[in-house]
């Protein structure tokens, strides 16, 4: 940390970090290798990647997962954003409670919620029918901690109270304050929350499989037994998409942090 490190240290650092890169990259390369190779002849083929669109059940499950992602984002934003703004503006004494509830899913494993949610889901299915989109509700719970953090840091960066008082004194109603004053100022945080929500929903397996809904990861696991290469191709495709989303998120949030850093400096 001081001056320039010794040669031995540099060599150790390079070797160690390269070993890490190999450890993390190798399984991904192996998936690509497996999904494009016919074992008997060693030929390369991308035929199994086409299963993403040509395999009916796989395509349907992808659509289900994308729909779930969109609905979960919409539900999360509608539920969380107004609540969090309102807490800051009018009920600050509820701050700790809302934070506690939002972070609670980190302490209660998804598997535990699945075990206890049967009656609640039966009730949901009674009202909206037996559709995989019912998963939207528990998924909103799953993404609460991550979404809360993203939106909270965006809200902390602006003076919600002054903004809303200024708007109110100029005659704005509450809907105007929420949609036209506060929301445009926290759009980065909301986008961050939406990104991590999409990433989590697309990869979610526990709820989907144990509640017997054919979401993308569940379907991928199912077709592995009959079409191993197509399944691995789909799994790799999904993780690439999720990785791109999460990388995007880290860049968005870093930009925001550096901007805030400059603003306070």
């Amino acid at each position: 940390m001081t001056g320039s490190p010794s040669v031995g240290f540099r060599v150790f650092r390079a070797v160690f970090l390269l070993a890490c890169v190999a450890f993390f990259a190798l399984p991904l390369v192996a998936m690509l290798d497996f999904s494009t190779k016919i074992p008997a002849t060693g030929e390369r083929t991308f035929a199994d990647w086409q299963a993403l669109v040509t395999n009916d059940s796989l395509r349907e499950s992808i659509i289900v997962s994308v729909e779930l992602a969109v609905l979960t984002v919409a539900g999360m934003v509608l539920l969380l954003v107004p609540t969090m703004i309102w807490v800051r503006l009018r009920v600050p004494r509820a701050t700790r409670l809302v934070e506690f509830l939002c972070l609670l899913p980190l302490t209660i494993p998804a598997l535990v919620i699945v075990v206890g949610i049967k009656n609640v889901m039966a009730w949901v299915n009674y009202y909206i029918g037996d559709t995989p989109l019912a998963l939207t509700f528990p998924y909103i719970i799953l993404v609460l901690p991550f979404s809360y953090r993203a939106i909270d840091s965006a809200l902390s960066a602006i003076d919600v109270k002054t903004l809303s008082e200024a708007a109110r004194s100029l005659g704005a109603g509450w809907p105007t304050v929420f949609v036209r004053i506060v929301l445009p100022n926290i759009v980065g945080g909301v986008l961050g929350a939406a990104t991590i929500t999409v990433a989590l929903v697309l990869g979610e397996f526990t709820f989907g499989s144990l509640l017997n809904y054919q979401t993308m990861p569940v379907e991928i696991a199912a077709i592995y037994k009959v079409q191993a290469r197509a399944a691995v191709a789909a799994a790799l495709a999904s993780i690439i998409l999720i990785a791109v989303l999460l990388m995007l998120l880290s860049y968005v949030s870093r930009d925001r942090r550096t901007r805030e850093g400059r603003a306070t400096a």
Binding site: P27, M31, I242
Partner: peptide
């Protein structure tokens, strides 16, 4: 950030 979220189907297949 990406790798820590890695799990489930994809991770199992990868290995």
């Amino acid at each position: 950030g990406v790798l820590a979220q890695f799990g489930g189907v994809t991770l199992a297949f990868a290995w």
